[in-house]
């Protein structure tokens, strides 16, 4: 059983690290890096679901009969694109925040807002 689920548990560990960075760090950029880890861990989860022991990449050839599942690959291709799009937008926001406030530390931002 341990071996059966080993991959999934690694995913969970990665996920928790990512989530931890997102909610515990003050720096807005660090939060985004954490978010990236968080998202990637879910990608790894999907790809693990699609793996078949002894299978090969799902590109048809006359010598192979066992392939890994192509559907999770497709979904994750889409999800990666969504992820990078989100990141681009988030980073743009961070740059604007830096411009407007002069800092990217969450706690300092809160203080600045409470003052005015």
């Amino acid at each position: 059983m341990f071996y059966d689920l080993y991959n999934y548990w690694m995913v969970i560990v990665l996920m928790m690290i990512g989530l931890y960075i997102v909610i515990s760090r003050n720096n807005l950029i660090k939060k985004l890096i954490g978010l990236n880890i968080f998202q990637t861990s879910v990608f790894i989860f999907y790809i693990s679901v699609g793996k078949v022991d002894g299978g090969t990449a799902p590109i048809f050839s006359s010598t192979e009969t066992l392939y890994s599942n192509p559907l999770p690959h497709v979904l994750i291709l889409t999800a990666i694109v969504v992820g990078i799009a989100t990141m681009a937008l988030a980073l743009a926001l961070v740059v604007r925040i830096k411009r407007a406030y002069g800092t990217v530390e969450d706690a300092e931002l809160q203080e600045l807002d409470n003052r005015c």
Binding site: L19, V22, L89, L93, I97, Y101, D113
Partner: peptide, 26 residues
Amino acid sequence: RRALLAAYQYLILGTIGATFLLLGIG
């Protein structure tokens, strides 16, 4: 300028929400 911060916070929470959804789907 607080709109920027609001958008950022929404983005973080929204993305976590969406990723949870993605995990559930998986």
